[in-house]
Design a protein around this nucleic acid. Structure first.
Lengths: 228, 228
DNA sequence: AGTATAGTTTCACTAAGATCGAACTATGAT
DNA sequence: ATCATAGTTCGATCTTAGTGAAACTATACT
């Protein structure tokens, strides 16, 4: 009869529009305050407070108090992966938003996904890394290869002190392919911003490439027909 | 501000206990009738009817009418994967059911996951297949190798006419590792039952191995220390 | 034809929970 | 000390959606 874990509780938490919007905002990987999340959720402060308590109690997000602010983040990687997967199903079944924002194409092109690069560019990057043998896949897990380590060092990516699993695939809702996730994904993301190749749009998950950044990106992670 | 697909609709559909139980029941891969699903959901027929309509409208399940019965199944593979992932999060955050059923250990050991073998045994099988080079992983996708084809034929698995992707990994909520999914996973599952190595428990996702089946399984998909 | 079963529709009831104004606490700034 | 801002608690209101009894349609069996 009734078997296995109780999924309805978790799903119900995500099932409220205000909470779903808050969680989606947290997918950017940035820690957000209660007020910011109230804005994202489209509700007043008391309502947001109540929602946030429920999300914390449900283990979906965690809080860190800093001065008079409270910073919220997604609790674990698996939450981000779950949300990304939900977006995949929602996109496939045509449950896009009523008013499609102008940022939608930009969002599909490049965006932050819980601290790593997602969208068309993110998928292209992982595909290039696989093609060049920088990483290799095993049963849905990803492993970094010596060539990858070398390349990452050359790019100046901080790879020391990363926790296992260093890299893992993350299914992309807009591309329906994997992009690079895990600690390595986050480290690369950080480095690409440091290098000035791309920049986060404020208050958005959208990531914008500079002209030079795009050029460099295409050299290091070419679309196909690897020449390097 | 508000970006990306609208996840709250899908999540809300799964967020109701009755609907969640129905969906969990459908994870067995069997097509179930409205009455059976009413029983699984713990609600009366009219209520179930209403729920099923919503699930169909939301694209989570599909109906097939046959005589005076209506058979419901999960709409797509990605729904099953989403549910399995939800179970993973639910299990991690300790949202197990209030009254843990006696079948819980059996469920963790071997169960049907939308038509393929999941649980400890399922994970063991995929790991053995990877170790022996029967399948290989690429960026979260799985590919069958010549050796795998040969072995599958030897076992009598029906591998002709499978649609791509033939096999793919599916994250297991109880093991937090991947098991073999996709068309190949379903074909192997079917064959193992045909061979009498295992049998489905009625009205449950639990799969029980026979003594001989277990022996054979351990020979073909050994835990580790491949000898074959 | 008559009866049984599968599933749906209608409807009224109920309960859960989302919402926010107002008052409150806590921290920081001047 | 005083004021401003961040966040919470309380309480009242309101909406939404789940629920099943009763009556209905549709298919199947005999």
């Amino acid at each position: 009869m009734i078997e296995g874990p109780n999924i309805s509780g978790i799903a119900a938490l995500i099932g409220d529009p205000a909470r779903a919007n808050m969680l989606t905002a947290l997918m950017s990987g940035k820690a957000l305050t209660a007020s910011e999340l109230a804005l994202e959720g489209g509700v007043m402060a008391p309502t947001a407070s109540s929602h946030l308590q429920k999300l914390v109690a449900g283990g979906l997000i965690t809080v860190r108090k800093q001065g008079r602010h409270k910073y919220y983040t997604l609790a674990e990687d698996d939450i981000a992966e779950l949300l990304e997967r939900l977006m995949g199903v929602a996109a496939r079944t045509g449950q896009m938003r009523v008013r499609t924002g102008p940022k939608d194409p930009a969002l599909r092109r490049a965006r932050a996904c819980y601290g790593h690069l997602a969208g068309n560019m993110g998928v292209q990057m992982l595909e290039a890394m696989l093609r060049d043998g920088m990483v290799a896949g095993h049963a849905g897990a990803l492993e970094i290869m010596p060539l990858g380590l070398e390349k990452m060092r050359a790019l100046g990516v901080e790879i020391e002190g990363l926790k296992l699993p260093v890299c893992k695939p993350c299914l992309d809702w807009s591309e329906r392919k994997n992009h690079l996730g895990g600690q390595l994904g986050a480290a690369v993301f950080k480095r690409l911003i440091e290098l000035g190749w791309m920049r986060r749009r404020p208050d958005s998950r959208v990531v914008a490439f500079s002209a030079e950044g795009l050029r460099q990106f295409e050299i290091h992670f070419p679309k196909d027909g690897k020449i390097l």
